[in-house]
Write a protein that binds this DNA or RNA. Structure first.
Ligand SMILES: [Zn+2]
Ligand SMILES: [Zn+2]
Ligand SMILES: [Zn+2]
Ligand SMILES: [Zn+2]
Lengths: 159, 159
DNA sequence: TACCTAATTGAGACTCAGTCTCAACTATTG
DNA sequence: CAATAGTTGAGACTGAGTCTCAATTAGGTA
């Protein structure tokens, strides 16, 4: 079964009213791995320019609430969305030069996270874990030519 | 020696021109643990209203480039800055209910990060690692009364 | 099927955080 | 102290996202 059909079923089960606009937004979103809200706006408007920007943002929020999409901040530009519905948990590794994103799993980190929150008496609800670096290709090109904007400087410098 | 004197020395060593405005911004920034750009603007203007917003943002960018401050995204509101100059590396744990931020160290996670990037042939430059949960106190209050806005919903749900 | 009603939509005004521009000013060098 | 390259203040501007509200529509009900 197509992925968007499952999402629509989930929404219906949650009592969410389905409209043509929402169906289109869902169909376009599942076509991507990672996308920004404005990218989705342009994409959806390419299929139906009459769909308002506000509707697309509202639908995205709806999908977020329904647990269908997650919001990522990769420190460069606006947040990135990902349809994680029926997808195993993973963290991300990004090349700061070319922007390539790799999804990885490392259960031992997740175990340590539990140990950390226990140390402080917290109850863990969620986490973000993102690694930034240079992919094999970009390690061999002139480091001077940085293609990503200056805000993408290191947040936490690795010693 | 006062912390801001060391920062000023570092800037001078980097050939950065010191002005009264920049000195004030540095002195106010080191007074905080974590702060947003607009908080710093209000604070600095409290001491000298003639300092322009643009100057404060420019100085913040300068300090960022010089490795004096780091930028954090805690998924709620605008980014958070932290003067990490001469401070040991740490990650963050935040209570999604009351906003408390705890700084923690977990070297075993950093080791695993190296293993992950090696797996993909990457060269690690930096990372973000943030845990979100409920502090001891907030675990015992009515979960219905959520004080943080809806955008602070989970990004990566822990299984 | 037709109707009803609450939910949703489109359009555009609006907000907020941050950036840019440029003439006036100033820290540093010699 | 003069020269000059870097910095500043003020405000216009931008991008991304939110809000408002009259018009439209989904989905339940008769
Ligand atoms: Zn994870
Ligand atoms: Zn992903
Ligand atoms: Zn760390
Ligand atoms: Zn910190």
């Amino acid at each position: 079964m197509k992925r968007f059909v499952e999402v629509e079923q989930l929404l219906r089960a949650k009592g969410v009213r389905l409209t043509d606009q929402r169906r289109l937004v869902v169909r376009r979103a599942v076509a991507y791995l990672h996308f920004t809200a404005e990218e989705l706006v342009r994409d959806v408007k390419g299929f139906d320019p009459s769909v308002a920007r506000g509707t697309i943002y509202r639908t995205l929020a709806l999908l977020h609430q329904a647990g269908v999409v997650e919001k990522h901040d990769f420190r460069y530009g606006p947040p990135n969305y990902e349809v994680t519905f029926a997808k195993a948990h993973h963290d991300h590794l990004m090349c700061v030069q070319c922007g390539e994103i790799i999804e990885f799993q490392e259960p031992r980190v997740e175990t340590l996270q539990q140990a950390v929150v226990k140390r402080y008496g917290y109850q863990l609800l969620s986490h973000t874990h993102k690694l930034y670096g240079l992919c094999r290709t970009c390690q061999h090109v002139d480091r001077k030519r940085v293609s990503l904007p200056p805000t993408l400087h290191v947040e936490e410098v690795v010693a």
